[in-house]
Design a protein around this nucleic acid. Structure first.
Lengths: 148, 148
DNA sequence: AGATTTATCTTCCTTTAGGAAGAGATTAGA
DNA sequence: TCTAATCTCTTCCTAAAGGAAGATAAATCT
């Protein structure tokens, strides 16, 4: 990992591995692509209304309702009434969604072990990177979603 | 990032941000979920036959052929004849697929800038992690795909 | 209060992706 | 050599997801 091309390749393969694992996990739970997408949005941004979720996923209202139906039936989210506006509904992700959590657990354990191998100072570096990369990816994603 | 729960949450959000960005990029290129999945497989494992790609994606032969048709039409892969077996075809990813690369470029630049901010020693830690995490995710993905 | 806007949901229709079965070509094996 | 197995592709059918339009209920504004 000396030349920039090596670094780029390593990073691209790392991203591919992350994506493939996510897809494989979703498939193992019989979750469609959009369902996984929505769950990631909820993981990242917390509870929100169907309207907002529809906007973020790029779906119209009809499919959004059924997306939420699927997630609710599978036990990943819950519909709660909004306290301040009775037209609204709040989609709350459920803390530890059994099936998906179970499927992703082995990878989490493996990554936990890897991270645990580093010194506290090195872990600081890693988590600093995680936080900053999260923001960078969020910003880039917003820019991708705006244009259309 | 002091308690383990914080660390776990940071990491989960990081993963979600990565996944969301991948999905958004694919959507911006009008790529379906399976298409993105297949491209990630090719990125990670290099050229392979339709049969192997079908196995890896979990598709039967019919849909696999059309998956490759879509990717080829969009300019992401190329069909090459196999030199040793004339029944076989080799699906080669195209080095720099224009559209997708262009869409992902802003994020790559942002991440490159973040990584460039660290000291060489810190970068060593990051890339060591990337390499090890890649293997861990690959292994976990294989285990997820085997059972069924 | 009445009209307008907002938010979710329902229904119907279209599109697309995936499975099943089989054809054509090539290789491997008896 | 002739049969069986392998690999890709084609065709037809089914199923699932998304768009469009409208219904219902509640909030907002005059």
């Amino acid at each position: 990992m000396s030349t920039p091309e090596d670094a780029s390749k390593i990073y691209r393969q790392y991203l591919s591995a992350v994506m493939l694992h996510g897809h494989a996990g979703a498939k193992a739970c019989h979750l469609g692509a959009t369902d996984l997408y929505a769950l990631n949005i909820l993981e990242l941004s917390g509870a929100m209304t169907p309207g907002e979720l529809g906007t973020r996923t790029g779906l119209t209202t009809g499919p959004t309702t059924r997306l939420i139906d699927r997630l609710e039936a599978a036990g990943y989210v819950r519909r709660a009434p909004s306290p301040d506006d009775r037209r609204k509904v709040i989609i709350e992700p459920i803390d530890r969604p059994g099936r998906l959590d179970e499927v992703l657990a082995p990878a989490r354990r493996a990554i936990g072990a890897i991270i645990g191998d580093y010194s506290p100072e090195e872990r600081e570096v890693l988590f600093d990177y995680f936080v900053r990369a999260t923001r960078a990816y969020q910003d880039s994603t917003e820019n991708l979603n705006e244009p259309p």
